[in-house]
Design a binder for these strands. Structure first.
Length: 277
DNA sequence: AGCCAGGGTCTGC
DNA sequence: GCAGACCATGGC
């Protein structure tokens, strides 16, 4: 099949590898030539960056302008990360953390996929999460013309039983996935209102799901619902906050707490010796 | 080999 | 409200 490319110029404060390996997404894989390939929005894309130029390639099909808009939105190219880093850098810890991975963007991912992915993430490691999600897509997702598999819809998963999910080898999380799918399909949990509700109500909406607690809800809200004020607390972040922010986060950082959290998470996970004991 | 992983639920104080 | 057991599986 013929291939097509879309190029963005003058993209600063963005690094493909930092953005796609910082633990916020699970379907992008690094290729041998430093590019990344992943399935998003029903298409397999390959992305590579040279300097401030970012190029996407994919099988030719669909409206180019529409795809361009989607990619720009997904990678959050319109947000001024330089300004956010300047703001956060008033605190020396954020200054160091942001300098460690200055090219991280918070992806604007699909809400259902993100919710489901972070249900799978609980008490799990990033490598295995990716494997389970790959099997989930290959087993229950639609096969696209370019050979990739879409993330399965909530409707598809709502018809399944725990036994049906056995090939995923996702353990105790199977019943959580099914509960989430059923509640979303029935409308008992909305995937629209968490974008606009006051943040505590948005969390409560997602926590109606069996197996969704504060951490999974916050990750879903931050990475899948555009709520950058969320500050998901996992074991790494708890370690880092205890050591570096014993008095809590500074007030001015709160609107961008989620972005600050991503810098910190990446920093802590790659420098574990800083937080031992 | 054994501890740990981008946690949550359930039970018992 | 809070601590502790328990949950499946596999990465390292």
């Amino acid at each position: 099949m013929q291939r097509q490319t879309i190029t963005f110029y003058n993209i600063t404060d963005f690094d493909v590898a930092q953005t796609l390996t910082c633990g916020q997404c699970f379907r992008w894989k690094e290729n041998v030539d430093d590019s990344f390939s992943g399935v998003v929005n029903g298409r397999l894309y390959t992305v590579r960056a040279e300097g401030h130029t970012v190029t996407f390639s994919f099988s030719a099909q669909g409206d180019t302008e529409q795809i361009r808009d989607f990619l720009s939105h997904y990678f959050d190219f319109d947000t001024d990360y330089a300004e956010i880093k300047r703001l956060l850098s008033r605190h020396p810890v954020f200054k160091s953390a942001a300098a460690y991975a200055p090219g991280i963007h918070i992806l604007r991912q699909d809400s259902w996929e993100t919710l489901c992915s972070f249900i799978i993430s609980q008490n799990n490691n990033i490598k295995r999460i990716g494997g389970i999600i790959d099997r989930l897509c290959e087993t229950f997702g639609n096969l696209m013309p370019d050979g990739s598999y879409e993330f399965p819809t909530a409707k598809t998963l709502s018809y399944l039983t725990e036994e049906d999910l056995a090939p995923l080898r996702c353990g105790f999380r199977a019943k959580y996935i099914i509960d989430a799918a059923k509640r979303v399909v029935s409308g008992k949990v909305s995937l629209d209102t968490p974008r606009i509700l006051p943040i505590e109500e948005a969390r409560a909406e997602l926590m109606k799901i069996y197996g969704v607690g504060p951490k999974v809800a916050d990750c879903a809200l931050l990475f899948g619902f555009g709520r950058t004020e969320c500050f998901p607390k996992d074991v790494w972040i708890n370690r880092a906050v205890a050591a570096l922010f014993p008095e809590g986060l500074p007030e001015y950082a709160l609107p961008y707490a989620g972005i600050a959290q991503q810098y910190l998470f990446h920093y802590a996970r790659n420098n574990p010796q800083l937080f031992e004991d």
